[in-house]
């Protein structure tokens, strides 16, 4: 599925979901796999519960830290609506790995608009490879609901070429020791999700 020299992963979610560690591990793995890597995200006001995207790019040489519009190879979503919102930025032959989580935006919470129905089906109408991950359920199965992002990384690892050992090494380096075991379990559970 990867047809150009630089591969682009667009991460989409809700500010405050704590996607930072996931993108750190991802960048570390890609660097260890021998790629040039760039990652771009936003902090501050942009993070307060609003719609956020991060960009991860890797290849022999990466220039722009942000992904050219419409050129994402992988859309890595932490929440359904936010994944759907950025769907047009992913190539039709790309992949979507999405957390099966719904967080109501303000207008929905106030009863002024509706959360779109059946987003997974809508994603599949535009992109053939869509993997919906029950992040929270698998994280609880791993032993800690806070490992959702690691579960999602496990699922993402199936659409990237890095070796399992490189993922484990990155987690050993970046995850605090007391949370390592539960995160390794979470990663394995995510990696078992194939579609």
């Amino acid at each position: 599925m990867i047809d150009n020299k630089v591969t682009n992963i667009l991460m989409a979610g809700v500010g405050g979901q704590g996607t930072l560690l996931a993108s750190e591990i991802l960048s570390e793995v890609l660097m260890q796999a021998g790629h040039d890597v760039k990652k771009a995200e936003v902090h501050g006001m942009a993070q307060r519960g609003g719609s956020v995207v991060s960009h991860v790019r890797f290849g022999p040489k990466v220039y722009s830290p942000t992904i050219p519009e419409g050129k994402a190879d992988i859309l890595f979503g932490f929440e359904l609506l936010e994944t759907y919102r950025y769907l047009s930025l992913v190539k039709p032959n790309g992949a979507v790995v999405v957390n099966n989580l719904r967080i109501a935006p303000p207008s929905v919470a106030l009863g002024q608009s509706r959360y779109p129905d059946d987003i997974a089906t809508k994603l599949r109408q535009h992109v053939s490879d869509v993997r919906v991950v029950d992040g929270l359920q698998l994280a609880e199965q791993a032993g800690n609901p806070r490992t959702v992002n690691t579960v999602l990384l496990g699922a993402l690892s199936n659409v990237l070429e890095a070796a399992n050992e490189q993922w484990l090494a990155a987690m050993r380096k970046l995850v605090p020791a007391r949370f390592l075991d539960v995160n390794l379990r979470a990663f394995e559970l995510g990696r078992a999700v194939k579609d």
Binding site: G16, L81, R85
Partner: peptide
């Protein structure tokens, strides 16, 4: 789609 502006925690 319903927008998602930033909000207080």
């Amino acid at each position: 789609l319903p927008p998602r502006p930033p909000n207080m925690c």
